[in-house]
Design a protein around this nucleic acid. Structure first.
Length: 411
DNA sequence: CCTCCACCGGAACGTGAGGAGT
DNA sequence: ACTCCTCACGTTCCGGTGGAGG
């Protein structure tokens, strides 16, 4: 590759006219002013919440839908509209939004709620029930309706569901104010783990967000692309292709927007003035590779070691390897670097986990006389995955370690 | 048709870290 | 500061099994 002078390099990039007008609208954090193809859900939400404007307690609501079906956007949108309207009508109505993935313990949730009402609750230290009563006093100081949106509520439930139990019973302790909750969940079955009392209270109303189909995603992308890109930079096939890829991915609009953004970034990087079909295909691949790299990088050491063993065997010419082979190599690697040795039983589970993550493909096959085992093949690139694994300082010493493979009797 | 390999995968239990309650 | 609980991660033990080879 030829080296340009730095000056020339930057000059070239500056001269290059940007194709984006406003890239932010393609990011998942952006909440649009109106949502396409979610009228039915938004209407149901509004119908239930309208009683807040009359000073009544709206029913609690559970919202289900897979990732990228517009749950969060729709809920926030309705919340904002509700607050606007209540202001205009001079009714006190507050909508709080909490993401339970970030705030995932009872204490932090309550402290966060109390703080939104101006209470001075320390990050840690108070007993949980004191935080709770502070919160109750605070909101009961005047007549108002409070709507708490709990996004990713399934994350909260996995920790413990007594927060939800307490919150769902809060109205019995309140004299002037009223509280209602909206739970948003990716997981359709998460109520199975719920205390039946919480379940019936929380699920007074349920709204389902179905996945978008390719055509609907197309509409959404078209609308967003108008704001995000300059006119005419998108090739005709770009949006339909993004939509088609995302539709395969169970109608995930977030994925579609990512694709559209990354496609543009790739085109920009190539100094192209137009985004073409091939950019979308490259983007699709890039997103997938990035995902895998991230998963591999954050794997626990033991799993990394198992994966490294599989790659090692693969590089020695084995297409499909068995659990036994992997375990043998794994033992040698463990001895070479100072790492605890796990049992084969445990390794079986780790291999299954790698399978679930889509990094390897493991199927149980019978080799007749030669027993029954998992046949493992790699479903990611060997060299790049190996490099990611070697970034881990604990695996680094293995780079030039080449233990012999115990030969198999058959084949 | 039966055997027997080389593992699979369920169950029960052990351990240590980290929260909640007191 | 203390105990109690829960949970993730591992281990031990072991019954179970599809099919090539006898």
């Amino acid at each position: 590759m030829k080296n340009k002078s730095l000056d020339g390099l930057f000059q070239e990039l500056l001269n290059n006219e940007p194709i984006f007008k406003n890239k932010e609208v393609l990011r998942p954090s952006y909440t649009p002013d109106f949502l396409l193809h979610r009228d039915a859900q938004i209407n149901s939400l509004a119908t239930i919440l309208v009683s807040a404007l009359r000073g009544d307690t709206p029913s609690n609501i559970l919202i289900y839908g897979k990732t990228g079906t517009g749950k969060t956007a729709a809920t926030r949108h309705v919340g904002i509209e509700l607050e606007k309207k209540s202001e205009a009508m001079n009714v006190s109505c507050v909508v709080l939004y909490i993401n339970c993935e970030v705030i995932d313990t009872q204490y932090r949730l309550l402290a966060n709620l109390a703080r939104q009402f101006g209470e001075d609750v320390p990050m840690t230290g108070w007993p949980t029930d004191q935080v709770f009563s502070t919160f109750k006093e605070s909101i009961d100081s005047k007549e108002q309706v409070i709507i708490i949106i709990l996004d990713e509520i399934d994350k909260l439930v996995k920790k413990s569901d007594d927060v939800l139990y307490n919150l769902s019973r809060i109205n019995t302790d309140l004299k002037r104010s009223k509280v209602s909750m909206i739970g948003v969940s990716n997981d359709l079955k998460f109520t199975e783990f719920l205390d039946p009392r919480v379940k019936s209270s929380l699920g007074e109303e349920e709204i389902i967000f179905p996945p978008y189909d390719a055509e609907q995603i197309s509409d959404i992308l078209k609308e967003r692309a108008q704001i995000a890109y300059k006119d005419g930079v998108l090739d005709d096939m770009v949006i339909p292709l993004c939509a088609a890829f995302a539709a395969q991915e169970h109608g995930d609009a977030r994925r579609a927007l990512d694709l559209l953004r990354v496609s543009g970034e790739l085109a920009e990087r190539e100094n192209q003035s137009k985004v073409e079909e091939r950019h979308v295909r490259n983007a699709q691949e890039k997103i997938e590779v990035d995902r895998i790299v991230e998963v591999v990088r954050t794997l626990p050491t033991q799993s990394k070691l198992v994966l490294y063993s599989i790659i090692y065997l693969r590089n020695k010419g084995y297409r499909n390897v068995t659990t036994g082979q992997v375990y043998n190599i794994y033992l040698k690697f463990c001895n070479s670097i100072d790492v605890d040795v796990l049992t084969q039983r445990r390794i079986t589970d780790l291999i299954s986990e790698l399978d679930m993550l889509g990094i390897v493909n493991a199927i149980v096959v019978s080799k007749g006389r030669y027993g029954r085992t998992k046949e493992i093949s790699l479903s990611v690139s060997t060299s790049s995955t190996r490099n990611v694994l070697l970034e881990d300082y604990r695996l680094k010493p293995l780079e030039n370690f080449n233990p012999p493979i115990v030969s198999q009797m058959h084949l």
